[in-house]
Design a protein around this nucleic acid. Structure first.
Length: 549
RNA sequence: GCGCCCGUGGUGAAAUGGAUAUCACGACAGCCUCCGAAGCUGUAAGUAUAGGUUCGAUUCCUAUCGGGCGCACCA
């Protein structure tokens, strides 16, 4: 946790310096990893930002600050660089101490940084149980699950939920659709409703129904299909290594009257009005409202829209004590965000307690041709097919590499063909290679399995390739904080790719088994650190770390 | 029409307003008697366009062009 330690020490030193200079105190001193051509471990751009307000030359500020920071015990040297950076080189002993700490307790590296203990609920996927999960759900699942893992490691109290829309008119519509498939299978001339579910998965599902299904009505068929599809969603998530603390059923809300209670709450807060026989949430003209329209809560036929139970569900999240609510949506639902924000405000909850992550959609191609994905029309690629064809690790890493904002095109045929080019294997290969080196070290008697490697002499691990690895390992905890701040695992995936990229040049230039025993021990410690950080990092992404490939 | 998101080498992506824009795939030229060649070394190639703000813009603002998505008493 050397970067976190340095952040504290450098900030303290900078505050003392600023006081002596009669300058405004830097609230937090941002530490950056320097660009490739700068040969230092930490870079501080702060003097550039502060120069204007202080009415000083940034380079002069940097020079003066660097002298103050050079006194921090972990700092080898601190120098100013134009136009106003402070570049810091860390002591070899400090980086080696960090390395040693990683290998002693890899699972604690980057863990619990003493940050906020707010209770967080992250809801994701939440696909309707009216068809198999499709490929696009893989993106939200990867995003949510990786984020939950990262935040848990950082010591946050976070729960993952999947909301299941198992109530309302969809049950009957699904039932009518599968019943038609059932009758077609018996040779009858049955028609799937126009707005029903055309997907061929209902043919197999109808065939799998028990004997007593002969007497079922559409409602019973719908119940049967929905149970089966929900169960397939659970299987898919298990295979994709995505964990939910709770599968929250919409029917639970109706069963215990939470939907009506929520309506009454909104009424008592004077957020509701009646018009044309329907009940509306008056969000259009509410002060500071996120939404520009009023929304129907109860239709003129007396039935609630999807929106009212959704509000009830979100109210329940707050009622259960969660202080921060994060919803993950695909871009096809982004229009939903303003109205949910307005609903949160209508419930009297603070606006900043609710956050929606909107990830862009995956556009599916077959060759040059775009394929429109639709569960109703049955034109989609099931997530399960993608996992089976490309592999869980490759899928998750592929999705984890991109920001939620990126629009990505996906050609399944290409993905299958190129799956061996997937960057995840580049990272996993480093892990397997290091494991192989340890096996070799044991065979040759250089190292005993399970024995502790000594703290290296400061004269070792000094070559550029070794220093680069030591430095990169030091930034891992900071990367996890970036992921939390950006609410996305993509900085971690990119970090692992860069770490792996630094290992291979080291491997080429620094032999281990054939080196002298002291150097060998130091290098074994270094690669143990790389191995551990890769394993920890991949596991946060839900990706395995094989010892052989 | 209105709103949200995105335009980065041939392809796919990265870069809290910071330094000489990073990585992988592909291309080209090399490297296995040597701890795993799923690897390494080197070369060529990039911020859609036009303005603006700034000491500094891939990043912020405006316009244009291109693409995705959304604008129900469906969910």
């Amino acid at each position: 946790m050397i970067i976190a330690t340095l952040r504290n020490k450098l900030s303290t030193a900078a505050r003392q310096w600023a006081r002596a200079q009669d300058l405004p105190l830097p609230a937090n001193l941002p530490l950056c990893a320097p660009p490739a051509h700068v040969k230092s471990d930490i870079s501080l751009p702060w003097p550039l930002a502060a120069a204007k307000a202080a009415k000083k030359n940034p380079l002069d500020l940097a020079k003066s600050l660097s002298e103050a920071l050079a006194k921090v015990s972990e700092v080898e040297n601190a120098v100013s660089a134009p136009p106003g950076f402070v570049n810091i080189v860390l002591k070899q002993t400090a980086l080696c101490g960090n390395l040693k700490a990683i290998t002693l307790a890899p699972h604690l590296y980057g863990a619990d940084d003493g940050g906020p203990k707010t209770k967080v609920l992250i809801e994701f996927v939440s696909a309707n149980p009216t068809g198999p999960l499709h490929m696009a759900s893989g993106r939200g699942a990867t995003l949510g699950d990786s984020l939950v893992r990262i935040m848990k490691r950082l010591g946050r109290e976070v729960c993952a939920e999947y909301y299941v829309n198992d109530a309302g008119g969809r049950v009957v519509l699904l039932g009518e659709s599968i019943l038609a498939r059932h009758q077609q299978a018996k040779g009858h001339n049955a028609k799937i409703p126009d707005n029903g579910y055309q997907g061929e998965y209902l043919i197999d599902l109808a065939a799998a129904a028990p004997a007593q299904a002969q007497s079922w009505d559409a409602q019973a068929w719908g119940r049967f299909a929905m149970d089966a599809l929900l169960s397939s969603h659970k299987d898919d998530m298990r295979v994709f290594d995505v964990h939910f603390d709770r599968w929250y059923l919409e029917s639970e809300l109706h069963a215990r009257g939470a939907v009506n209670d929520t309506l009454n709450t909104l009424k008592s807060r004077a957020m509701v009005f009646e018009k044309e026989g329907a009940v509306w949430l008056g969000t259009a003209n509410a002060e500071g409202s996120a939404d520009d329209k009023d929304r129907v809560l109860v239709k003129s036929d007396g039935k609630p829209t999807y929106f009212l139970p959704d509000i009830a569900y979100h109210k329940d999240k707050y009622d259960r004590g969660f202080e921060r609510i994060i919803d993950i949506f695909g871009a096809d639902h982004h229009g939903y965000v303003p109205r949910m924000k307005a609903a949160i405000a209508a419930l009297g909850k603070p606006a900043d307690s609710y956050h929606a992550i909107v990830h862009q959609l995956i556009h599916l191609y077959r060759g040059q041709e775009a394929v429109k994905m639709s569960k109703r029309a049955g034109t989609f690629i099931p997530l399960r097919e993608l996992i089976d064809e490309v592999g869980k690790d490759a899928c998750r890493f592929f999705f984890a590499l991109r920001t939620p904002d990126s629009h990505l095109n996906f050609d399944l045929e290409l993905a299958k063909k190129q799956s061996s080019d997937n960057p995840v294997f580049y990272v996993q290969y480093v892990h397997a290679r290091i494991c192989s080196i340890f096996r070799k070290a044991e065979e040759t008697g250089l190292h005993r399995a399970g024995s502790e490697l000594p703290m290296p002499n400061a004269l070792f691990l000094n070559s550029p390739a070794e220093r680069a690895l030591l430095n990169k390992l030091a930034w891992f905890p900071d990367i996890l904080l970036d992921c939390e701040r950006l609410l996305s695992p993509h900085p971690l995936a990119n970090y692992l790719l860069e770490l792996a990229g630094l290992f291979h040049p080291f491997y080429e230039s620094c032999p281990i088994i054939s080196a002298g025993s002291e150097i060998a021990a130091a290098r074994l410690l270094l690669i143990a650190g790389v191995r551990d950080v890769i394993r920890e990092g991949l596991s946060l992404l839900g990706v395995s770390s094989p010892e052989h490939m």
